[in-house]
Design a protein around this nucleic acid. Sequence first.
DNA 1: CCCTGATTCGC
DNA 2: GCGAATCAGG
Length: 201
Amino acid sequence: MSWTDDRVEILKKMWGEGQSASQIAKELGGVTRNAVIGKVHRLGLSNRTTAGAAAKTDTPKAEPKAKPVPKAPPKAKPVAVEPEPEPVSTKPDLKTEPAIAPNTPRPPRNQIIPAGQPLPPQPSANEISPEALAKVNEIEKKAKKLSLMELTERTCKWPVGDPATEDFWFCGLPVKQGKPYCEAHVGVAFQPMSARRDRRR
DNA sequence: CCCTGATTCGC
DNA sequence: GCGAATCAGG
């Protein structure tokens, strides 16, 4: 794919929003994050920090070539302006975060669909094997307790706690394979038909 | 390990 | 101009 005007525009917009190159690449499709970064640089819209700062890469001709080894060029770390990583995004309130607000009809705090689209259907929140439950209770103590924004494709997206409370987070442990959850949570999320079949009480 | 952006350089 | 490979870090 090529850098059409509209694609460049998306790039500019997302980069301006502080999106990572990989995210932008995914959004655009057909390009890698390297391509995005390369384009960003070519466009000259690199410095995400202070706008006014002139963070130019000094002309690389000041250094005479006396290196037998073609590798290891001078490390580019000249400008030491004040850092300012986070652009804006001041959202101390997490209940204003997306995707999960509307349906919270479950007193026994448990699963609410987090991130968005392609998550598998939730089990009806009961009928779970005791072993799996025990396992979950254990690993949840070790959970990374990630916020919604911190989730990635390989962090367990199992929600814990009440989203309307401070006491809400996502498991965040390494996911199992291509699953959205860690091993323990996969255990309760994906019940084999046979196991849940005649779970007489 | 996962991720991030930065740079280089052949195309 | 483009972007894979590589580098440098978190």
